[in-house]
Simulated scan of single mutants.
Amino acid sequence: MDHLREIETDGISNPREISRLAIDIGGSLIKLVYFSRDSSDHEDPLNDCVGVSNGVNGRLHFAKFETTKINDCLKFISANKLLLGGLQNQENPTSDKSFIKATGGGAYKFSDLFKEKLGISLEKEDEMECLVTGANFLLKAVNHEAFTYLNGQKEFVQIDHNDLYPYLLVNIGSGVSMVKVDGDGKFERVSGTSVGGGTFWGLGKLLTKCQSFDELLELSHRGNNRVVDMLVGDISGGMDYSKIGLSSTAIASSFGRAISNNNELDDYKPEDVSRSLLRMISNNIGQISYLNALRFGLKRIFFGGFFIRGHSYTMETISVAVHFWSKGEAKAMFLRHEGFLGALGAFMSYDRHSLDDSMINQSVQIPVDASCGTDTNCNPLERDLNETESMQCRVYQA
């Protein structure tokens, strides 16, 4: 409790600064997005957040928790008075109960817990719609949001708003959803796979005894997958299979080397196992994503979700897979705010469903020089609220 009191002291000094909160509760992670206005603004918080005035400067904040540690998330919300980011119950205006927008399967699973612990209702928003809304918002509003990563080089992509659609959105959470996006509110889930972030974490925990996703990811940095994987050279006498475009170092069978000897799991280094697992899943996602893009003639594929986490090896593997199978015609593109698409979509849904007609056109505009750290490997409970990931923004009336 001493730690919690420290947060209450060091957090936002004026709770009126918080004017909007939305949450995405996934199978592995809980993501929060909330808006705080600059302390120099003194108008009504609700009006500020929707831009009824000429415009309100502030910040969009981003935070995450493991879903298994949902009580830490509840403490964080309570300690920093983020419930002021919700709205009063429209059906019963005299009620002192408020609600916040929420998406993800956990919005249903933990609904009673939020009401019991915080006295707050979760107003559920469709998960797929939130993902698309969040992605469209970022691609239109944030300069240098999308980038490619190949051969160790990160290159930002300038998005032409008039030529954004259609594109394939690949959201890699516990599982993977692949969504063809044709416009604002126009989308179709065309495919997916159960082999995603949950697979990496679940199998990795069983095989390496790592206790967190980040620990497993860090372990993979030090690994060598060639100790575990069977390569093309292993079955072709060390030669390239140039006739079909395969180098000797290409993976012929993930984890295949384990069948060619009498080793047990304990004979392999955990970091090598982690590296092989990460590469197997990333390769698989990259290949399936391109095949679905090919189905619909899509040249652009955007990857989101907290599986990636700005991890260079993951992005490189996905990019190489897309490049290889498309023969260089398609590109894998990544998003700086990759893990917060659903939470951002839920954040934007306030304007669609909770405000009167005069406020429908409100939106959040991110300036050209906006910046946001993408290192989300921290638990916000260990940091001052103002030190969580955030970006400068201005809320205005269109």
Score class of each variant (00 low, 15 high):
L4M: 12
L4N: 11
E8F: 06
S13W: 04
P15T: 04
I18R: 01
D24Y: 04
D24L: 00
I25E: 11
G26D: 09
S28N: 08
L32D: 08
V33H: 01
Y34V: 02
D41Y: 12
D41G: 03
E43N: 11
L46K: 13
N47L: 15
V52D: 07
S53W: 10
N57E: 11
G58E: 00
N71K: 11
L74W: 01
S78A: 14
L82Y: 00
L83W: 07
N89E: 15
T94D: 14
S95Y: 06
D96R: 13
S98W: 06
S98D: 06
G104F: 06
G105F: 04
Y108Q: 13
Y108A: 14
D112I: 08
F114L: 10
K115M: 12
D126P: 05
E129G: 07
E129F: 07
N136F: 01
A141W: 02
E145L: 01
E155N: 10
F156H: 14
G175P: 03
M178E: 01
M178D: 00
M178W: 01
V179S: 02
G183I: 04
D184F: 08
F187Y: 15
R189E: 13
R189F: 07
R189I: 09
S191I: 06
S194G: 15
G196E: 05
G198D: 02
G198V: 02
L203P: 04
T208Q: 06
F213W: 06
L217S: 14
E218K: 15
G223T: 14
N224W: 08
N224G: 11
R226C: 11
D234R: 09
I235D: 03
G245T: 13
G245K: 10
S248M: 14
A252C: 12
A252T: 05
S254V: 13
S254W: 15
F255T: 11
G256I: 15
G256W: 09
R257P: 05
I259P: 01
I259T: 10
N263Y: 11
R275Y: 13
R279P: 07
N283C: 12
I285L: 01
L291Q: 11
G297W: 09
K299H: 11
I301V: 09
G304D: 14
I308F: 11
M315F: 10
W325H: 14
K327V: 07
G328T: 01
H337A: 06
G339M: 11
G339F: 07
A343K: 05
S349L: 04
Y350Q: 07
R352K: 15
H353G: 06
S354Q: 03
S354R: 04
D357L: 11
S358H: 08
M359D: 00
N361G: 11
Q362V: 04
S363T: 04
S363A: 04
I366W: 01
A370Y: 03
D375E: 11
D375N: 09
N379Q: 07
V395T: 00
